[in-house]
Design a protein around this nucleic acid. Structure first.
Length: 575
RNA sequence: GGGCCUGUAGCCUAGUCUGGACAGGGCGAUAGCCUCCUAAGCUAUAGAUCGCGGGUUCGAAUCCCGCCAGGUCCGCCA
């Protein structure tokens, strides 16, 4: 798949390289995008000054003089130390519009790479419903999945299921030893909400009653030893929770391809292989019967730099099993991506070091996100101090419904308004979470989460709806388009934005930066709104121009729809 | 005590990896725009010691060092 703007950039790069080698300047060609009106691409010459022993301004002039005219270059100018390239707009306009209208749903998507990526995300303890503190995980993860697919990879998403830990053992004990009437009453009928009360009460009892604590310890020990009965007991306890979590994920357009239980790696003995390999490492030590790796030589600092991977009772730990999981993943993929909370940074580093020690061929690329906190502090399932994802989803949809009703209550049916509210509410939720870089802390505030104006999903969805509205009223067929007639600044700027989409996808994938997609879409929608103001489409008398504008409207619709799809957001035809 | 992450207008944020043309946006504020394709929109104005202090460089929000503040981790937990 070759896209116009990318093609133009390649041409400029290669012509530049040619000139630089003629002048015998040895440097990398890094193109910048200049500010408004100064061209489409720019090459700064500052760094050449010491090599050429000339002022950067003169170097820029020398280079500009020697650049040949190519298929894409219309004009080369200098501005101080910059060589500015102007792309042939006629060519760019026609080929961009053509590319979009031909490719439709695939516009922006990159050529197939024949490589498989496993994206691990969410992997939450199945002891209760998902809460907002970790809401970034599935949303970032799913967006990454979609971006990698668009960038040409085969992608599988995995949820690593912790079925051996203390958290699920507490839940299992609770479900099997407590009465329904004694546990806190849930607000939702979803199975995860119905079950979490048992966990909360059991957790409290464990703190007070040593007998309870001991029984829970037994469950943990037996499942870590791989005893099937214990694993089944735990499985039956968390199954409804997982079902509920999955429902929540589906509700926000997230589908997990595979749930991978931790116990798999105990049962198939692959974790024993990891233990044996690690024991052979020269960094391995033994202390009171337990085996550890010394992490200090690897730059890990702190009070305790020992990474214990085998307890004195011979059972493995979470991180040990995680190593086995990663070895297994590496066998089935060409690239691994994990989305983890920042609290997992050390564990992840330990796993990475251990993977290198056991000779793993692949180290995962990890995206860490900071927590979403409540204004008063951290969320906690155990203490019930939480805003659940389901609360947030419901509130967003409800608020969206109020907005729709306020604006369109007189013209739309109840059913239609509900449909639109669902698309907008969930879009707003996903957008608000993804638009911020993962590593920034977020303090959760309702008024921000429920923002429906400005840089938010409804703004973009609204532009899409506007485009659809125009297209639904058109009398003409969009064919024999002459995009060169689109000469208003608003039109040219819009087309240039649309032309950048494939590059945006590539960058977002390369840098694992899902938030760059939201920024781009906001710019597209904003530019479309300016076009909408400046260039009436349907009232335009000139047939050729009207059809050209219709083609541009349709092209914008396609880019917004494809872009929102990358974010797992539905593009409504009306709102 | 130590490691890692974050710090950009009243609030939120892009840009930081890969140094470059006046630090882009949004919310909120103020002032305008619906006999015209959906005003969830558009235009204009005001608002920034880029946490603080040094350094490197022709050039630093961006790189280096020190400090301050917030988050997070330093379990034979997960």
């Amino acid at each position: 798949m070759i896209y116009p703007l990318d093609d133009a950039r390649k041409e400029i790069t290669s012509l530049l390289k040619k000139v630089l080698s003629q002048l015998e300047y040895d440097c990398k060609v890094k193109l910048e995008i200049p500010p408004g009106g100064l061209g489409d691409f720019a090459f700064p010459c500052f760094s050449l000054a010491p090599i050429a022993k000339k002022s950067p301004n003169d170097i820029a002039k020398d280079i500009a003089k020697k650049i040949e005219k190519g298929k894409w270059i219309e004009k080369v100018e200098t501005n101080g130390a910059y060589v500015n390239f102007f792309i042939d707009n006629k060519n760019l306009k026609n080929s961009t519009i053509k590319s979009i209208l031909i490719n439709q749903k695939n516009y922006g998507y990159l050529a197939k790479k024949n490589k498989k990526v496993i994206v691990e995300h969410t992997s939450a303890n199945p002891n209760g419903p998902l809460h907002v503190g970790r809401a970034r995980n599935p949303i970032i993860g799913d967006t990454i999945v979609r971006i990698f697919k668009a960038a040409g990879y085969n992608v599988e998403s995995q949820f690593y299921l912790d079925d051996m830990g203390k958290q699920v053992a507490i839940l299992a004990w609770g479900v099997n030893n407590l009465e329904l009437k004694d546990v806190p009453k849930p607000e939702y009928s979803k199975p995860d909400h119905q079950t979490v009360g048992f966990y909360q009460l059991a957790s409290t009892l464990m703190g007070k009653d040593e007998k309870v604590s001991k029984q829970i310890g037994e469950i943990v020990k037996k499942s870590e030893e791989g005893e099937q009965k214990a694993i089944d007991l735990v499985h039956d306890a968390y199954a409804p929770v997982l079902k509920g979590i999955n429902e929540s994920l589906n509700h926000i357009n997230i589908a997990v391809d595979k749930y991978v239980p931790e116990s798999n790696f105990v049962r198939d003995k692959s974790v024993d292989f990891v233990v044996e390999k690690l024991k052979q490492s020269k960094y391995c030590g033994k202390e009171e019967g337990a085996f550890y790796l010394d992490m200090e030589p690897f730059g890990i600092q702190g009070r305790n730099t020992k990474f214990v991977f085998l307890r004195k009772d011979g059972t493995t730990l979470y991180a040990t099993r995680d190593i086995a999981y990663h070895l297994w993943k590496a066998k089935h993929a060409d690239l691994l991506v994990n989305v983890l909370g920042e609290d997992h940074k050390l564990e992840s580093k330990q796993v990475e070091i251990a993977l290198n020690l056991v000779g793993a061929k692949m180290i995962p690329r990890v995206i860490f996100y900071s927590f979403v906190s409540l204004p008063g502090g951290k969320m906690s399932t155990r203490r019930g101090r939480v805003v659940y994802i389901d609360d947030l989803i419901d509130e967003c949809v409800k608020r969206a419904y109020d907005e729709v009703k306020k604006r369109r209550g007189k013209e739309l049916s109840e059913k239609k308004m509900k449909e639109i509210a669902e698309k907008i509410g969930i879009g707003a939720l996903r957008y608000n979470i993804i638009k911020v870089q993962p590593e920034k802390d977020i303090a959760f505030k309702w008024e921000e989460a429920l923002n429906f104006e400005g840089n938010a999903s409804p703004f973009i969805q609204y532009s899409h709806a506007r485009a659809c509205s125009i297209l639904s009223k058109k009398q003409d067929e969009i064919k024999d388009v002459d995009a060169t007639l689109l000469n208003h600044d608003s039109e040219i700027d819009l087309i240039k934005k649309l032309a950048r989409f494939p590059i945006v996808i590539d960058d977002a994938c390369e840098g694992c930066k899902p938030h760059s997609i939201t920024n781009y879409l906001f710019e597209v929608a904003s530019q479309f709104n300016q076009f909408y103001r400046d260039c009436p489409v349907l009232p335009e008398k000139n047939n050729k121009l009207r059809i050209g504008r219709l083609a541009l409207v349709d092209s914008t619709r396609i880019v917004i729809q494809n872009g929102l799809d990358l974010l797992g957001i539905v593009a409504p035809e009306e709102m």
